[in-house]
Design a protein around this nucleic acid. Structure first.
Lengths: 339, 339
DNA sequence: CCGCATCGTTGGAACGTTCCATCGCCGGCC
DNA sequence: GGCCGGCGATGGAACGTTCCAACGATGCGG
């Protein structure tokens, strides 16, 4: 494999000049540049990224910490992130953090950090403990994509606005008993903001909000106001909610499953709204009304934030970019049949 | 950040000895080792991965080329691969190749190769042209996971066996007019083997096989025997197929969508079988009968093959590991109502 | 008692870049 | 005509490891 010296020899210049050409430094005459480029062409020279990284003590690797690659929401945004990063000359390195175990996640992060990535993108919540934050923050720029954290830059949808959008839609359809369902294991802090949006929309409409339902998909039971209840009792019927706003699509789809299994018709007996607009949601058999996150925008902005930090054009305290959610109405919502 | 020299100075030994300790070379006395380890502890020394990679001209990065991270099948196997690789001390680097454009894919591969990964795992077909194969193969070990290619190691399900399994299931239910549907854009070479399995099962049962249907999800039309036909005419009714075996789950789910839109009831009018057993397939609203690939096994074996190549314990021509597919019966299949 | 093998340790070279200080050359201005 | 400024090209140092040849000490056998 040819090195910079081989190119220099062939072009009849010094290695430094070749380096200047390769890196696009200005101050190289047109003639020389052409000669060098020709030599590069002939030899099929490719700069050794390892050597470059070594001497500069930084890479063009973008480390990405993913909550669960298998979750279509993450898969989707990971894919877009990869594309935008690539367009900007960065290679992405994914680490899958499967939530549960903070120690495990930490070892993962350390392995990633050993590769000295130029920056780290979080697609998962991580690093509650202050020392981890400090360690990470000191060594590399950090950006949160799709979620908001205070200790780093972030670009995210306004979750409260999205929550309000979803809830307003249900109110407009005539629903008054609207429940908010959150799925702890899938849940991120984003859920709290979505809940606030839900509350404010109901308040504005003069309707009362029900206590949030904490439900683990697959379970028959849920928690409300700290007490355990049967989920079935909370849905449909004379007293139950006529509509639910689930804090994310995966939870919402699980809710559809639950309804199917228990003979609750959607949307006749129960309207369901999700959040994220994962691909799944658009399948005819699911057809979930949901709040869309503009993933392309999120990915693009996230990479831009990172690049700005890297080239020094952005400094100072964390910057938080907000993008707008939008409502996607499908067939899991309808006016209540028994208002 | 302390270097190997700082440790050496503190421990009162040479940098070489520190290096030996860090790398676990034997031939270091117990006393010295203890002293060095203590120095490492005190200074909080961490070897510089960049420097190591540079001098060794290889990394502990496992490059993974993914067909489409957003496709749940790939997302799922990518996640497992990441886990197994991590357990073996490797970090994974994903590159998303979105199929369409070979040039685009090539530039992506080159960017990946620039990072000098220890090996490359393919989760996508790539590199039809012999020079690409040669280039890749010469520089790093290559393994195909979940699919089979002749120019590198591979670990994959027996696609023909899986095809036979699916088809046999339909035959057992009483179907005789069974169509094989392939979705070119999602399709890989694996489809051919699945088709062979389909054919052999029908042959064994004394039934005739229909010409394969090439169908692009979303389209109303398909190709059969090189002629364009309306897909609707091929399904259900007195003449049409009473069952279809789709070469992958995403295609099968699209087929369910198509059936829904055209008033074809599944499974009453049409049984549908897929291939892969993606998560989606198990949703109650989809409930697709399909052929499962043992993804964990595939991921594990793939990494093991790579490691064997890397430590030299496996040499010679490509090794092909076979794992067994299994049938997962759900509710998209039933006996034909009009036999 | 000397030579030789063995074991643990060591210093030097090499890896392929980037970055910086410096150099030579040429042209313009005093 | 000499001096100076600027531009383009250059050589050297540095980055932190790994790997290898060589070294000294020690013990053992002839």
């Amino acid at each position: 494999m040819p090195t910079i010296f081989d190119v220099a020899a062939l072009a009849g210049v010094s290695k430094s000049t070749v380096s200047n050409v390769v890196r696009g430094t200005d101050g190289v005459s047109e003639r020389t540049r052409a000669r060098v480029e020709r030599a590069i062409e002939i030899l099929g020279y490719r700069p050794n990224a390892l050597a470059r990284q070594f001497v500069r003590q930084r890479t063009t690797i973008l480390g990405v910490l993913v909550g669960d690659l298998d979750n279509p929401f993450y898969g989707d945004i990971a894919k877009r992130l990869e594309r935008v990063a690539f367009e900007n000359g960065y290679t992405t390195m994914f680490c899958n953090i499967e939530g549960q175990d903070e120690d495990f996640a930490l070892s993962r992060v350390e392995a990633l950090l050993e590769q000295r990535p130029a920056a780290i993108v979080f697609l998962a919540f991580f690093g509650r403990s202050p020392d981890i934050q400090a360690a990470l923050h000191a060594s590399v720029p950090v950006v949160f994509a799709g979620l908001r954290e205070d200790w780093g830059d972030s670009v995210s949808v306004s979750n409260s606005q999205g929550g309000a959008l979803a809830t307003q839609h249900l109110i407009n359809l005539g629903h008054r008993r609207i429940a908010y369902v959150t799925t702890p294991s899938l849940e991120q802090r984003a859920g709290q903001a979505r809940h606030r949006g839900y509350q404010s929309a109901l308040r504005a409409a003069g309707a009362r909000h029900l206590p949030p339902i904490h439900w683990e998909p697959g379970s028959e039971r849920a928690r409300m106001r700290g007490r355990e209840v049967a989920l079935r009792d909370q849905l449909g019927g004379a007293d139950g909610a006529t509509a639910v706003f689930c804090s994310n699509d995966i939870g919402a789809i699980a809710m559809l499953e639950y309804a199917d299994r228990h003979g609750i018709r959607v949307p006749e007996d129960l309207s369901v709204v999700g959040f994220d607009d994962v691909h799944l949601a658009s399948l005819a058999r699911i057809s979930l009304t949901t709040v869309r996150q503009p993933l392309d925008e999120i990915a693009t902005e996230a990479v831009e934030l990172v690049l700005a930090r890297l080239d020094g054009s952005l400094e100072g305290p964390p910057r938080h970019v907000r993008v707008s959610p939008s409502l996607v109405v499908r067939s899991s919502t309808a006016p209540p049949s028994s208002p």
